Amino acid sequence: MAPTTEIQAAVPTRTELPVVTDPSQVAPADARALSKLFFDRLAHLEEGTPEHQYARNTLIEMNMSLVRYAAGRFRSRGPQEMEDIVQVGMIGLIKAIDRFELAREVEFTSFAVPYIVGEIKRFFRDTSWAVHVPRRLQEARVELAKATEELSSRLGRKPTTKELAELMNLPEQEVVNAMVASNGYTSSSLDAAVGGSEDGESVLADFIGAEDTDLELVEDLHSLAPLLAGLDERDRRIIHLRFVEELTQGQIGEQLGISQMHVSRLLQRVLTRLRQGMLTAH
């Protein structure tokens, strides 16, 4: 009977858990076996007790390798951001531990990894914006997406801004701001190919914007300014009366005390001079 007693003494009772000196150094294979034991005891321990806290903390440290494994999928990020990814992944691990039950008859690793990866992806979704957007609008965008999905399912149509504002308990203008902010989450290159185009070579830039003729006007005015400054006072006045005050040649003649025919000849001469000056400038 003595050997039996020794074996029983070596096996933890329902009120005992093995002492793991450094849980973070436990090999993954051993962590899987120990995790089952700790989860079984965790289910029978009262939350808030030292025993419960020890079991939970040990589970977290023993399974940190799952976080490092999941974070490895995003190793293309810089080392600084990887630290944030691991921290966020730890949140997913803790959530998985708090929600796992042995009765599910699935390996904890299979249960936990989706939680960890999901938390990391949520981190990217909430922080990776193409342009800077205030934090409150980033958060409102997430709530807006949830509210839109819920109302669309309930109403069978796209909800109005007023309906969204009522559900989100926000002013309508704040909902509109969240909608506008959503446009800052992603950006596309102007050289990005657009599918469905007939030539198969169209890019996004071909479909947005238009040639601004006013820009050419600005350039022309810039070139014209020194030419106008070179005119004598009478010629500048004729130009001003004709193109700024928009008087007729007859009205200009009355103001200058000359005939309409004379105004016409003077105007033609000045415009020809300006035109030649513009051609030379370009």
Rank of each mutant, 00 (worst) to 15 (best):
Y185D: 02
S110H: 05
G277H: 02
R154A: 15
R242N: 08
A147Y: 02
R73D: 13
L279H: 11
Q251I: 05
Q25F: 04
I97F: 03
R14W: 06
T15I: 10
P23Y: 05
A31N: 03
M261F: 08
P134W: 02
S110A: 09
V117S: 01
L204M: 14
V20N: 05
A70T: 01
V142P: 01
A281H: 12
F123S: 04
A71G: 05
D235N: 14
A210T: 12
A112R: 00
Q173T: 13
T213R: 13
M278S: 08
G184L: 10
E149T: 13
V133I: 15
H282L: 07
R56P: 00
T13G: 14
R136L: 09
K158P: 01
E107G: 11
E198I: 13
G253Y: 04
T4S: 14
S128A: 12
E83F: 06
V142L: 09
R269H: 10
L66I: 02
E6F: 11
M90C: 13
A130C: 12
E198C: 04
M1N: 14
V244N: 07
S35T: 05
K95I: 04
E143V: 02
L170K: 10
I116D: 00
G89N: 01
V131P: 01
S223K: 08
L228P: 01
E143Q: 15
A29F: 10
R104T: 06
E101T: 12
E149R: 13
T148Q: 10
I239C: 01
T213W: 11
P23I: 07
E16N: 05
M179D: 02
V19G: 02
V117N: 02
A147P: 04
A70V: 15
D30Y: 05
G195H: 08
V176F: 05
D30V: 07
K121F: 09
R273Y: 10
F243A: 06
D30R: 14
R275Q: 10
F124S: 03
L241S: 07
T127Y: 04
A147M: 06
I94F: 05
G72F: 12
E143T: 08
A192K: 13
T272V: 07
L221C: 14
A10V: 04
G156C: 12
D206F: 08
A96I: 05
V142K: 06
R275P: 00
R41D: 06
A181Q: 06
S182Y: 00
P28N: 09
R157Q: 11
V180G: 02
R32T: 14
A71L: 06
A130Y: 14
E211P: 00
A103V: 09
I116P: 00
T49S: 15
D235I: 02
R141A: 14
G48L: 06
E143G: 07
L247N: 02
V113K: 04
R125H: 14
A96Y: 01
V180P: 03
G118H: 06
A145P: 00
E83Y: 03
M82P: 01
